[in-house]
Simulated scan of single mutants.
Amino acid sequence: MSEVFLLKDGKGRAFLVRPRLGGVFHHHRGTVPHEAILEAGPGGVVRTHLGEPLSVHRPTLEEYVLHMRRSATPTYPKDASAMVALLDLAPGMRVLEAGTGSGGLTLFLARAVGREGLVDTYEKRPHHLKQAVENVRAFWPVDNVRFHEGGLEEAELPQEAYHGVALDLMEPWKVLEKAASALMPDRFLVAYLPNVTQVLETLRAAEGLPLRLERMLEVAWREWEVRLPVAHPRFQQVGHTAFLLAFRKWKAS
């Protein structure tokens, strides 16, 4: 597995590159042989044949998720990091995820539970799952993710085996009861829901289940442009992406 690098030009535009023997990176201001990127290494600088400088970096998880290949819209890093916090994950824990999508949230979960932990992730669409497997394995060499083709509806899930459940589905209410039964008592289930109609339907489905709504929130990041001596909010901001619903499971009496 080759290492992944991130190149940045003078305007802050970023490009993911996986160097290969004889490969060439193409920028609109010239080309760079992959060998030059490997020689420069993270923290170094390369120049295109037209003299354009490009800084070389090892991508952060946020940068990788925003620039990796995708077959589905990834969970934005701001939401994925919030879900990790809401799930209260720690190394060694087991997490259940559905659906995998392009693998962005999967990466956040896998890194949170660490080498001794486990992520079981389910995706119905084979082409999305194939892309997710490639994305995860290209960035995260630790073997702590099990990929499953199919939905939770058909899955054989152990009872009260997971420390957390993360749902990124169009209709999570269809699997809510089954997901709740696989969750340990006093642990958390977090659903990622783009629109309020999904929120209301999920809340209705939670009635009668051993789930108590703890939080409903949106995550907003306001980025600033800094060009001394001037600083102002960026003109283009990421607005609404999703509502996050966090449920806590209680023991059924």
Rank of each mutant, 00 (worst) to 15 (best):
M1F: 06
M1T: 06
S2D: 15
E3I: 09
V4S: 12
L6E: 02
F15Y: 15
V17D: 00
R20M: 03
F25G: 00
H27G: 12
H27P: 04
R29T: 00
P33F: 10
H34F: 13
E35Y: 01
E35G: 11
I37Q: 00
I37Y: 02
R47P: 06
T48C: 09
H49K: 06
L54T: 01
L61N: 07
E62S: 10
E63C: 01
Y64W: 11
M68R: 03
P77G: 11
P77T: 07
K78R: 15
S81R: 13
L86P: 07
D88I: 01
G92N: 09
M93G: 05
R94S: 11
V95R: 13
A98S: 15
T106G: 05
F108M: 05
A110T: 05
V113Y: 05
V113S: 08
V113T: 05
E116S: 15
E116K: 14
G117W: 12
V119Q: 13
V119R: 15
D120T: 04
T121R: 10
Q131R: 14
V133G: 00
E134A: 14
F139L: 13
W140S: 03
F147M: 05
G151R: 07
G151D: 09
L152C: 11
A155N: 08
Q159H: 14
G164P: 10
D168G: 13
M170Q: 12
P172F: 11
A180K: 04
A180N: 03
L183K: 08
R187Q: 05
R187T: 05
F188M: 07
L189A: 01
P194Q: 05
V196I: 15
V199H: 04
V199G: 05
V199I: 08
L203W: 12
A206Q: 07
A206V: 12
L211G: 08
L213G: 10
E218D: 09
A220P: 00
W224E: 01
V226I: 15
R227N: 03
L228A: 14
P229T: 08
P229V: 09
P229R: 03
H232W: 13
R234N: 02
Q236Y: 10
V238R: 09
H240E: 14
T241R: 07
L245K: 01
F247V: 06
K251Y: 02
A252W: 07
A252D: 09
S253W: 09
